[in-house]
């Protein structure tokens, strides 16, 4: 300790009455060094935390993508796999005579739908059927009118 350092302690104690705990500067030095090394470790943790945020964000995006995909993947008769549609069309043609293919279509197609989605699938199929019926009715009326006209 040089004379200037001794003097700085002395002047503050003598003129301003400030005192210190014993060995304060030694203890304080160790505390500061320990905080500095903790700070270095914290930086590493912070970096990991930063990475974890990205992982979490990626995870959320993935869950969202799956949810959207699943929603789109709930099949309607229109977007059934080609093989299924072929089977349905064949059946449809065979049953054209008695016009009762709708119920059977739904039953067959529903075999390819998971239990959780059956209800949504049936409801979609019902709506499609109503729309088709409506379209057929209009078509028949137009045909009859054309026949009357000509």
């Amino acid at each position: 300790m040089d004379s200037k350092e001794k003097n700085i302690d002395k002047i503050h104690k003598k003129e301003l009455g400030f005192d210190l705990p014993e060995d304060y500067f030694l203890k304080s030095k160790n505390q500061i060094l320990s905080k500095v090394s903790t700070n270095k470790e914290t930086k590493i943790i912070a970096l990991l935390k930063h990475k974890m945020v990205w992982f979490a964000a990626a995870g959320i995006a993935l869950i969202f993508a799956i949810a959207v995909y699943k929603q789109q993947a709930i099949p309607s008769i229109k977007n059934m796999p080609v093989l299924v549609l072929d089977t349905l069309n064949t059946d449809k043609n065979l049953n054209m005579a008695n016009y009762s293919f709708f119920e059977e279509d739904v039953l067959i197609a529903s075999l390819f739908v998971s239990d959780n989605n059956v209800e949504i699938f049936v409801s979609n199929a019902f709506i499609e059927d109503v729309v088709t019926d409506e379209y057929l009715d209009e078509f028949i009326v137009e045909e009859l009118m054309n026949e009357d006209l000509f």
Binding site: I8, D9, H12, F18, F25, S28, K29, I32, L33
Partner: peptide, 18 residues
């Protein structure tokens, strides 16, 4: 940094204390 502490710890402490 340890050397820096030895050099400035007291002077800065008294500066801050006032």
């Amino acid at each position: 940094f340890k050397k820096l502490l030895d050099l400035y710890q007291k002077r800065l402490y008294w500066h801050i204390r006032k």
